[in-house]
Structure formats: C-alpha cells, structure tokens
Amino acid sequence: MADRLVCRECHRVQESVETDSCQSCGSTSLTEDWAGYVVITHPEESEIAAEMGVTEPGQYALKVR
C-alpha cells in the first residue's frame, strides 16, 4: 500500500501509479504521504461519504499531508 499515490484534492487512492494525475478529478497534486483509508461502495447512502464530500465509489485516504 505504501507505493500507492493519493490525490491531495479529492483524497482518492490511485489504482495505477503510472500516471501523474488523479483518475477521478484530474489534479496533478499527488502524494505518497497519507494515512488510513476507507472503501466507499454506496456514497449516496454513506454518512462518511457525505462528510468527506465523496460522490463516487472507491478507496479514499482519511489523512493526506
């Protein structure tokens, strides 16, 4: 998991580290400095997704530095 990148803007964990931009929001601000993650499968029913502002299913970092 340490080799995965996370978007500083939307906190989405990137499945492929071969690209230099976020697959979700397009931001180029990616980092390896993050901690914890949550898997959101049904964002429309999730209180955590609402709190994080997540609208798409996926893996999201809880803390991004």
Rank of each mutant, 00 (worst) to 15 (best):
A2Y: 03
L30S: 03
G53L: 10
G26D: 12
A50Y: 13
A50Q: 15
T19P: 01
T19G: 05
G36C: 01
E47H: 11
S46I: 09
V64Q: 04
A35E: 13
Y37D: 01
T41C: 12
S46L: 09
V64Y: 04
D3K: 08
R12H: 10
E47P: 04
E18I: 02
E45Y: 14
Q23G: 15
D20S: 11
Y37T: 00
A50D: 15
T41L: 14
E9A: 09
S29K: 13
T41S: 14
C7I: 10
R8A: 13
E51F: 08
R4V: 03
S46F: 09
Q23I: 05
V13I: 15
S29I: 03
T19C: 03
A50V: 05
V13Y: 08
E51P: 00
H42L: 12
K63C: 00
G36V: 02
S29V: 06
H11V: 00
L30N: 03
V64N: 03
C10E: 08
E15W: 10
V38I: 15
L5P: 01
Q59H: 07
G36K: 01
Y60F: 10
L30A: 00
R8P: 04
E51W: 07
H42A: 13
R12V: 06
V13D: 04
D20K: 11
E56N: 05
G53A: 09
M1N: 13
T19A: 11
H11A: 00
T28F: 09
G58P: 10
D33E: 15
A61P: 02
A2V: 00
G36W: 04
I40V: 15
L30Y: 05
V6W: 06
E56A: 05
G53H: 09
V17I: 14
A50M: 12
E44S: 11
V39I: 13
V13N: 04
C25F: 15
M52E: 03
I48E: 15
I40H: 08
H42N: 14
R65C: 04
I40N: 06
E32V: 01
V38F: 09
G53Q: 07
A2F: 04
Y60S: 01
M52G: 01
T41G: 12
T41V: 13
E45F: 13
Y60N: 02
V6L: 06
G36P: 02
S29M: 11
C25N: 15
L5Q: 14
P43H: 06
P43T: 05
E15H: 06
R12P: 01
R65D: 15
C22E: 08
W34G: 00
G26L: 08
V39G: 02
G58I: 11
D20A: 12
A50C: 06
H42M: 12
E44P: 01
V38W: 05
T31G: 02
L5A: 07
V17Y: 04
E45P: 03
V64T: 07
G36Y: 04
Q23S: 12
A35V: 07
R8N: 14
P57N: 07
S29F: 07
T41E: 15
E44N: 11
C10K: 05
Q59A: 10
V38K: 04
S16I: 05
E47G: 11
I40A: 07
